[in-house]
């Protein structure tokens, strides 16, 4: 099993007055799966993704990824873990002071690695960004920004790709484009875990994880 969650609870607020986001969650995610995390706004989807991506720590319980217990990991180990995964945000979260190619390279630079120039060019070509590689981030369309974000998440050749509403801010045309890219990535063997409201992803997902009031249930899509 690639990812295992055991009795994971996450609360916010003070000890006296806690808000429970996730309660005693158990979850297994297999390598090569395309898991969708579904649920209403405020149900705890993004919290779960943050925990899985090593951006936040559990209040109790265990998250074991590739045999490594994230709940016990210190800051340095968590940083190392984050450098081994890819992550895409709804709001792209590109660095505005860097151009397209630099933003992609930052996926490696941030963790002290040197990006493979050939792979950078390959990603630029693959996502149709070659002609815009030196462009200012502010001049890109929403679709282009998300493609840059996807390329950045892939530059370090991650084992898992976490996506937080990747098409949430895109128009229909760009949404389709990004969906196709993610589908291809999954087909190439990448494990994808995605928080989304977009039902179209159900058609390409292998697992559905639904959260209601902090309680989790898993199912298979009907396709």
């Amino acid at each position: 099993m690639l990812i295992q969650l055991k009795n994971v609870t996450k609360t916010f607020g003070t000890k006296k007055n806690p808000t429970i986001a996730l309660k005693d969650i158990d979850l297994d995610i297999e390598q090569g799966s395309f898991s969708l995390i579904l649920g209403r706004s405020g149900s705890g989807k993004s919290t779960l993704l943050s925990l899985l991506a090593g951006l936040d720590k559990v209040t109790s319980g265990q998250i074991i990824i590739n045999g490594q217990d994230l709940s016990q990991a210190k800051a340095g180990k968590l940083a190392q873990y984050r450098s081994s995964i890819g992550i895409i945000f709804q709001a792209y979260n590109l660095l505005p002071n860097l151009n397209v190619v630099e933003n992609i390279q930052m996926g490696c630079w941030a963790s002290g690695k040197t990006p493979d120039d050939n792979y950078v060019n390959e990603l630029l070509t693959q996502f149709g960004l070659t002609h815009r590689q030196h462009a200012n981030i502010k001049t890109l369309s929403g679709g282009e920004k998300q493609r840059v974000a996807i390329a950045r998440s892939l530059i370090g050749r991650p084992s898992i790709l976490f996506c937080d509403e990747p098409t949430g801010a895109l128009d229909k045309q760009n949404e389709t484009q990004v969906t196709e890219i993610l589908q291809k990535l999954h087909q190439s063997g990448l494990t994808i875990i995605m928080v989304t409201h977009n039902p179209e992803f159900k058609s390409i997902a292998t697992d559905l994880i639904t959260i209601e009031d902090g309680i989790l249930s898993t199912s298979k899509p009907n396709n």
């Binding site: 951006l55 984050r82 979260n93």
Partner: peptide
């Protein structure tokens, strides 16, 4: 936000 992004990409606290 920049701090968050860099950390999400694997930057250490030291960085």
């Amino acid at each position: 936000k920049e701090i968050g992004v860099l950390k999400a990409l694997g930057a250490r606290n030291w960085d």
